[in-house]
């Protein structure tokens, strides 16, 4: 019935107001809705992308950042293939909460889940968290790192495409790569992502 070869669940988490919904809307609908209200519970969107000529269906779960929805959002961690942890580069508290989010991920998510740290709102002038701080944090915790702007559509497509490519490689290898060492293949990937994004920026 449906024409796709792989189906991956991608879950976005992070404090309220960091731009999770905007990232998803930008990627799935190509628009930036100004004055986006707070997400209630969990929103669900689907986008099919093509990787190496194969259709990959991304099921994107956009969770509410507010505390009162935590018991709903936590239930989605377990079945996620990839978790995108988002913070706002112009808002220190959203970065300071990352360890709490990681604890939550440790507790509820599969330990093989692909984890990506995203610093959103690079279009803002009032940056509070320098890029290298985010990078360091990601590296320490064995995560991919990317800075994005949902408003300017910067790196959004790439974020999801990298995830699709990576998950497809994992699925193809069947035997999932050993992520337990956390600094194995992941680390190499992290640098490559960073390198290329540096090139893009210069």
């Amino acid at each position: 019935m449906e024409d796709y070869k792989f189906l991956f669940k991608v879950v976005l988490v992070g404090n309220a107001g960091v731009g999770k919904t905007c990232l998803v809307r930008r990627f799935t609908q190509g628009l930036f809705p100004p004055g986006q209200g707070a997400t209630i519970g969990v929103d669900f969107m689907i986008k099919t992308v093509e990787v190496d000529g194969e259709k990959v269906k991304l099921q994107i779960w956009d969770t509410a950042g507010q505390e009162r929805f935590r018991s709903i959002t936590q239930s989605y961690y377990r079945s996620a293939h990839a978790l995108i942890l988002v913070y706002d580069i112009s808002c220190q508290p959203t970065f300071d909460c990352l360890p709490d989010w990681l604890r939550e991920i440790e507790e509820y998510a599969n330990n093989k889940v692909l984890r990506i740290l995203v610093g959103n709102k690079t279009d803002r002038e009032d940056r509070e968290i320098p890029r290298h701080i985010g990078e360091d944090f990601a590296q320490r915790h064995g995560m991919y790192f990317l800075e994005t702007s949902a408003k300017e559509a910067e790196n959004v497509e790439r974020l999801f495409m990298e995830i699709a490519v990576d998950l497809m490689e994992q699925a193809k290898c069947k035997e999932l790569p050993k992520y337990d060492g956390s600094l194995g293949p992941l680390n190499g990937k992290t640098t490559s992502v960073n390198d290329s994004s540096c090139c893009l920026r210069s």
Binding site: S71, I72, S75
Partner: peptide
């Protein structure tokens, strides 16, 4: 009466 509630419970039951 809540879709989100039903979904979360389904997730937990699955786990």
């Amino acid at each position: 009466g809540s879709v989100d509630g039903a979904c979360a419970v389904l997730n937990e039951a699955g786990a």
